[in-house]
């Protein structure tokens, strides 16, 4: 499979994502510079973490205007999986590709630590290889990761099974307040769009792909995307929005 890893000025997990995809997942992966306006030839798109354009205004607020984001929107409409990690999640929300917003952590401090994540549904290209209820361990590292949305949006997300991962106590699997690193509503760590091909999460699967780092759970998310693209897994709800294999 061929993954695009978007590079904005200020992206700082671009190298980590590329490394995880190439060396830990044995996939093809290429950087795509922010001034590029086409993503032709890629099977999936990763929007990595970092501080795009410095994020001095609001995280992702400037990146959404970058030329490459028009290409990401086109890709998202065509169906290939698009997946944003950390700053990538913020950018996808700012771009309107995902519902909700990420605001300053309730603690008002940057937080970097390992968290427990519960997989809430296997019905997505990003979690199809992971049984519901599985607890994953991976790090978060952000200052603005508190997921926020209005009541109606939250209800919609639940109704349509769009919350893919939630912060939980890694031992009990319960979404308790103590396990929530940033104050996200309903302990939401990651959501997908209604069409289920765009996914964003604050935790870093790219930092949990090797035993040296203490966890390989991130691989299961990447593997889900790879399996989906290879057509090995049953398609989610609507075949029409899935990536054409080998597109």
């Amino acid at each position: 499979m061929r993954f695009a890893v978007i590079q904005f000025p200020g992206s700082n997990c671009d190298q980590d994502c590329l490394h995880a995809l190439r060396d830990d997942m044995a996939q093809e992966a290429e950087y795509v510079w922010h001034k590029t306006d086409s993503l032709a030839g890629f099977d999936a798109v990763v929007v990595p973490g970092g501080f795009s354009y410095g994020d001095y205004l609001r995280c992702g607020a400037i990146a959404r205007f970058s030329p490459v984001m028009a290409a990401v929107k086109t890709a998202a409409a065509d169906g290939p999986p698009v997946f944003g990690v950390c700053n990538g999640f913020q950018i996808l929300c700012e771009s309107g590709l995902l519902p909700g917003a990420l605001i300053r952590n309730r603690s008002l401090q940057f937080v970097c630590e390992e968290v427990g994540l519960r997989v809430e549904t296997s019905d997505s290209p990003f979690t199809c290889a992971i049984p519901v209820g599985t607890i994953l361990r991976m790090p978060v590292a952000h200052g603005e990761g508190c997921y926020f949305a209005d009541h109606e949006t939250l209800r919609d997300l639940e109704t349509h099974d769009q919350v893919l991962v939630r912060y939980v106590d890694a031992k009990t699997g319960e979404p308790v307040a103590a396990a929530n690193p940033n104050g996200s509503l309903a302990n939401i760590a990651g959501v997908c769009n209604r069409e289920r091909n765009v996914f964003g999460l604050m935790p870093h699967p790219d930092r949990a792909c090797n035993r040296r780092l203490g966890s390989e759970d991130g691989k299961r998310i990447f593997q889900s995307v790879i399996d989906t693209l290879a057509g090995r897994r049953p398609a989610p709800k609507d075949d029409a929005v899935l990536a054409p294999v080998g597109a």
């Binding site: 700082n12 997990c13 190298q15 980590d16 490394h19 995880a20 973490g49 401090q109 940057f110 937080v111 970097c112 630590e113 790090p139 590292a141 870093h204 790219d206 930092r207 792909c209 090797n210 780092l213």
Partner: peptide
């Protein structure tokens, strides 16, 4: 906890 001590994996 306030330092990103995991970037660059």
């Amino acid at each position: 906890r306030q330092y990103d001590h995991m970037v660059r994996t």
